[in-house]
């Protein structure tokens, strides 16, 4: 029956369209609600996808990286660095390790101290960059071994500070989807109320249609079609407005975080196309249920 009704949505039935009196306040209410909800959904979707991108970036870039900082008196630094590299070479789960050059260390500090920093004259620790193999390594075991063989070496697992950030981004993404779910439910509730009001206000029309032999399916179909198409129209307008606003938001390029990255990337721009269709599907189901209930009450 639902399939037949959906088919009826696509194949226009001019007669069924006309049996329901044209519009009242429910039209404006449905259009406005659908537009507002779609507008909000676009933002929730953008937030969710941006949070997902961020979590994924942090995860990929930092998940398998660690650093070892070696602080030792000048005469021992080279020896401890060599020891650390040897230990790392022997440690299972380490994919690669290398000591940063002076230039690379200067580049790391440049944003804070400027390009003219006389690095040679400062007691700078040596940084060793470590890339884990797929299975990871035993951080506690490595830490103990380093303590014994190169006392100036301190292992800094990026995972330690990355994990809460990735978790936070994951929560934001979840929050976005929960918001979308709530918006969908609210849209369904509003359409149900509007459809219920329209059906109740048209009790006389329903009585006439029944008198001349209209089935409940026909009567419900006329209302379902009207509310579904109204919602689709309103949601399309709201989605379009949401996309325009997103496009006008400032972009910070690669350095962007959640706020400046609140837009879609690449094929993600196709996602909002689902918003009007989903809203129409919600309206379709909500009106169908409301119609069945009201027609049962009016029988």
């Amino acid at each position: 029956m639902l399939l037949a009704r959906f088919k009826g949505l696509i194949t226009r039935d001019a007669g069924a369209d006309r049996v329901v009196p044209p519009a009242g306040f429910t039209v404006r209410l449905t259009l406005f609600t659908a537009a507002a909800m779609a507008f909000l959904t676009v933002f929730a979707l953008a937030l969710s996808l941006a949070a997902g991108r961020l979590a994924s970036t942090w995860g990929e870039e930092l998940a398998r990286a660690s650093t070892i900082r070696i602080s030792a008196p000048e005469g021992q630094l080279a020896a401890q660095t060599a020891t650390v590299l040897r230990v790392l070479e022997q440690t299972p789960g380490i994919d690669s390790a290398r000591a940063l050059t002076t230039d690379e260390q200067r580049a790391l500090l440049e944003p804070w101290f400027g390009p003219d920093l006389p690095l040679e004259s400062l007691p700078m620790p040596q940084i060793v960059e470590v890339q884990e193999a797929k299975g990871g390594y035993d951080a506690d075991g490595l830490r103990l071994r380093l303590q014994a063989e190169a006392p100036g070496a301190v292992l800094d697992e990026h995972n330690r500070w990355r994990r809460p950030l990735v978790a936070a981004a994951g929560r934001l993404r979840l929050l976005g989807w929960v918001a979308i779910g709530l918006i969908g439910a609210a849209t369904g509730a509003m359409v149900t109320l509007a459809a219920h009001a329209a059906l109740a206000a048209n009790a006389q029309v329903i009585a006439v249609l029944r008198l001349v032999g209209a089935t409940d399916g026909y009567i419900a179909g006329a209302f379902v079609r009207r509310f579904t198409l109204r919602t689709l129209t309103g949601a399309a307008v709201g989605t379009f407005a949401g996309l325009i606003v997103l496009l006008l938001m400032p972009s910070a390029g690669d350095t962007g975080g959640i706020l400046t990255g609140l837009r879609f990337g690449g094929l993600q721009w196709l996602w909002p196309l689902l918003v009007p269709l989903s809203a129409a599907a919600v309206a379709f189901v909500a009106t169908e249920l409301a119609a069945r209930r009201v027609l049962g009450e009016l029988a």
Partner: peptide, 14 residues
């Protein structure tokens, strides 16, 4: 809201 002719034809429509 429908003209008389459409009202008379309503059984055919439904």
């Amino acid at each position: 809201h429908l003209p008389l002719a459409e009202n008379v034809a309503l059984p055919l429509t439904v």
